[in-house]
Design a protein around this nucleic acid. Structure first.
Lengths: 155, 155
DNA sequence: TATTGTTATACTCTATAACTATA
DNA sequence: TATAGTTATAGAGTATAACAATA
């Protein structure tokens, strides 16, 4: 994204209630963090969304597409081209599931596992940089608050 | 978005490092908050991005497109169809700027100001709901942490 | 009848390149 | 030569409807 006010202008624009809206703050923070993570992935020609799929496949080999989609908030229909891409690059593969001929079990290839190891190292380094920016305890507190927002909570 | 794990499944999927990544938490929280804000805007047939433009125009009448884009992190080229939409709906208008015949000053119409008032009320109500979910002081703390993420900070 | 995966399609948001009319 | 706005275009990401194969 065209990251917003790098806080350097003189004749500042009055943002009114936007300045105090969580939606606005989330949008800006997410855009910045996404851009940084993407930048740290360019050397591997990878993006955050397919990376997330690789992470899930590594921990849950044989998972079906519908389950992967559910875990990551991706609709089955939108998952198809993402899996296609990973398969074409030789990072993941679809295999038939013994008991159910409709389903496809998803697996990381050897290349996929090796690539993922490098990607996770890059992601961890980025996360450490973010933690630095947030100060002691800031990251954990932020994660906790974000999780409360993510779940509507039947209160 | 297809909001992810509503925390009700039994055979949970292992998300590995994703579960502790700020990018992932931001994505989920942003998707949920965006969806809620959009839902609260549907009665006015409005979306968060053009709403943000209306807010800025209300506080900064006569602002040029390039300045609006800079304030909101929208490229001039992507702003054009957004302003077109607001203009076609009679909510905002482009006027010639006295000193510079290249530029366009942006203004809210009367209808735009009236519509915005209703939208801001809806946005404020949503914000209050989010604050409830975050507990005492949670919202302010979250805003502070998010702002630290949004600015790379030349440290 | 329901489920898994798929195709087709559309809309929103963001991105780059190149153009116009001014300055 | 640079700037404000614009057009054209492309790529992600997300959304719905409908279908084939299978359960």
């Amino acid at each position: 994204m065209n990251t917003p006010p790098p806080a350097n202008d003189d004749a500042a624009v009055d943002l009114g209630p936007l300045a105090a809206m969580l939606h606005h703050a989330l949008r800006n923070a997410q855009a910045q963090v996404l851009e940084e993570l993407q930048a740290s992935f360019t050397a591997e020609d990878m993006r955050p969304l397919p990376f997330a799929i690789l992470v899930v496949l590594a921990r849950n080999p044989g998972l079906r597409q519908i389950q992967v989609g559910f875990a990551l908030g991706i609709q089955p229909t939108n998952l198809v081209p993402l899996i296609d891409g990973l398969e074409q690059r030789g990072l993941a593969e679809r295999r038939v599931v013994p008991g159910d001929r409709r389903a496809r079990g998803l697996f990381l290839t050897k290349l996929g596992a090796e690539t993922l190891a490098r990607l996770e190292a890059r992601a961890a380094a980025h996360e450490a940089r973010l933690a630095d920016r947030l100060g002691p305890g800031g990251r954990e507190q932020l994660l906790s608050l974000l999780r409360r927002l993510a779940h509507p909570i039947p209160d």
